[in-house]
Design a protein around this nucleic acid. Sequence first.
DNA 1: GTGGTCTAGACCACC
DNA 2: GTGGTCTAGACCACC
Lengths: 121, 121, 121, 121
Amino acid sequence: MNLTIDAKSPLPVYQQVIQAIKLEVLSGSLRDGDPLPSIRDLAKLLRINPNTVAKAYYALEAEGFAEGRSGSGSRVKAPPGRQDVLRRAMLESEFRDFLEKAASLGFSLEDVRQLTERMKK
Amino acid sequence: MNLTIDAKSPLPVYQQVIQAIKLEVLSGSLRDGDPLPSIRDLAKLLRINPNTVAKAYYALEAEGFAEGRSGSGSRVKAPPGRQDVLRRAMLESEFRDFLEKAASLGFSLEDVRQLTERMKK
Amino acid sequence: MNLTIDAKSPLPVYQQVIQAIKLEVLSGSLRDGDPLPSIRDLAKLLRINPNTVAKAYYALEAEGFAEGRSGSGSRVKAPPGRQDVLRRAMLESEFRDFLEKAASLGFSLEDVRQLTERMKK
Amino acid sequence: MNLTIDAKSPLPVYQQVIQAIKLEVLSGSLRDGDPLPSIRDLAKLLRINPNTVAKAYYALEAEGFAEGRSGSGSRVKAPPGRQDVLRRAMLESEFRDFLEKAASLGFSLEDVRQLTERMKK
DNA sequence: GTGGTCTAGACCACC
DNA sequence: GTGGTCTAGACCACC
C-alpha cells in the first residue's frame, strides 16, 4: 500500500482512497484475498477520519473490489475478468482524456508523439 | 467559445469555466481585447447560475486573463509572455500527470510511446 | 411520504429510510420526477441526523431510485421496468419469507390458507 | 437442531441463535429437558465464536427457555403455557407483519388470499 | 435554501 | 482488536 492524499485535490478524499486501492488491485500490487489495512489504521496513516476510510471501503465493497466482515478485517477481492485487460482499458481511457486536453490546447496526436520521443532521450 | 460543463465532475463548475476560458486564450482562440460573452449570456448558454459565471470572471480578472467594468462587458487580457511557450508548458504538465497515472497502472514511458504509435495508424 | 422510523428495529435506520422510499415508489405513491423532501427536512421530520438521511439518499441514487443535484433538491427516479411487475415480485418474495418462518413453526401452506380465510370474515 | 446463520442479516448473530432455538422449542422439535449442544460444539457447527453462542444461551436462560450450569451442559426448559397456543400466537404475529408489508406495497388481504390459492396448485 | 464531504467521537456486535 | 452505524456540527459549491 503506497498511497498519499492530496487535500487540495478537487477529487474528494474518499474517492482518492477508492482510486488508489483500485489501482493497486489492477496493477497487481494487491491481489485477491490480500488483507487491507484496518479502517482505523489507514485513517491514522493518511491522517483522515475513520469515517472517510469506511466510506471508501464501503464503496469498494459495493463495486466488488473488497470484502469485509465485522471483526475480521477487510480483504481485497479482485474483480472477475483479466486484470491486464482492465489495466490496458484504464490506460487508454486516461490517454484519450489527455489527448482531449492536448487538442483543446491546439496540439495534435503527432505533437504528442514527438513529445514522447523527446522524453525518451 | 466552445465549452461544456460537466455537473458530475469533481472540479467545481466555476473552475471548469475558468479552465475553459484560459485554454481558449492560450490556444489563441481568444485574443487580447476580444470581448467575453456577458455573464447572463454565458450563464444561459451553459445553463448555470449567473453567480457562478460571475465568480469565474472575477477569478479570471484576478489572474490577469480578463478585465471588465460593469456596464461595458468583459474583455480578454492575454497575459504577458509568449503564448506558445505557455501552451507548451501546459501540455507538458498535463503529460506528466498522465505519465504518473500510467506509471501507477504499471506502464512505462515506452508503453505510452507504443500507444501513440498504434493510434497514429 | 408516510414513513416512520423504528429505533429498536435491527434494520439500520438508513436502511429503513431506503426501504420506505422504495416502497413508496413501487406502490405508486411516489412517481418519476416527484421531489423528495430535502435531506434536512426529512431528518427533522424523522428526528434523525441529516447524515443518516444523506446516506440513504446516496444509496437510493446508486440503485437508480433517486437523483439529486446540489442546490436543487432530490427527485424520484422510477426504475426501468414495469412497476406492477416489481411490486408483485416483492410481494411474493416477502410471502416466501413468511412461509419459511411458518414452516419452521410447524405450519403448512394449508394452515396459512386457513388463516387468511378466517381473517377475511 | 437445524439452524443456519446469515452473517449479512441485520439481525445480530446471537439473536438468530436465540430465535432458532425458540422456534425449535415452540414447534416441538426440542422438548423440556432435552440437552442443548455444548457451546463449543454449536459454535463449531455454525462457525461462529463461542462467546456468541454463550451470549445466546445466557439470554435463553434469562427468558426461561433453557437452564444449565457450567460443567453439566444446558437443557431445554419449555416455558409454562400450552406450546400450541404460543406457536399459533407467533404465526399470527408474523402474518400481521407480512400483511403490513403487503399493504405498504398496495396489496389487500384479498390479494394475499388469492396468492395462497395460486400457490396451492 | 440545496446536496456533498469531512471531522470528532460514540456505541454496537463480533473476534 | 474489527467493521457498521449514528449523532452533532462544520464548511463547500451551487441556487
